[in-house]
Amino acid sequence: MTPDDRHDMEPLRRVKAPAGFTDRVLAACAADDASRRTPFHRRPAALWRAAGLGLAAVLAVLMLTGRVRSPGERPQASTAPSVVPEKDLQQARRQLGWTLAVTTGVIDRSSDRALRDIFDHRLPDAINRSLHQTFDPNRKGRS
């Protein structure tokens, strides 16, 4: 390389990062950290699996308790007692308990409080209330 070339390339060696660049980078790193702390960034597959299991559990319970009717099925007479035997109901409850335990385990690992609250408390409570209403002997039949 000639002295002229060396002189020509000098501007490349003089380039400096803009003022405040370090702070800008550190702020971006902190923001990146914060965004990656959300469950969907950390364990997206586990969360989708948990949501799927939860939904499947709810649908299974609703199907077993007769709250979701297949197309074409006529509604039962309003005064008819529930046709779901106690044995099936117990099994559904066991399956639901198992599903929720698995779901809770997955969510525990992802340490997300909001989702844990939903799957630990709100969802089981809602399903329990729904089951109680369905099999409440004092409750009037569905229309």
């Binding site: 380039v15 990062a17 803009p18 660049f21 370090t22 980078v25 550190l26």
Partner: peptide, 14 residues
């Protein structure tokens, strides 16, 4: 990490 940034920022930006 701030020290790392300061050490390399001119080269990376350049």
């Amino acid at each position: 990490f701030a020290d790392v940034v300061r050490a390399h920022q001119d080269a990376v930006y350049g």
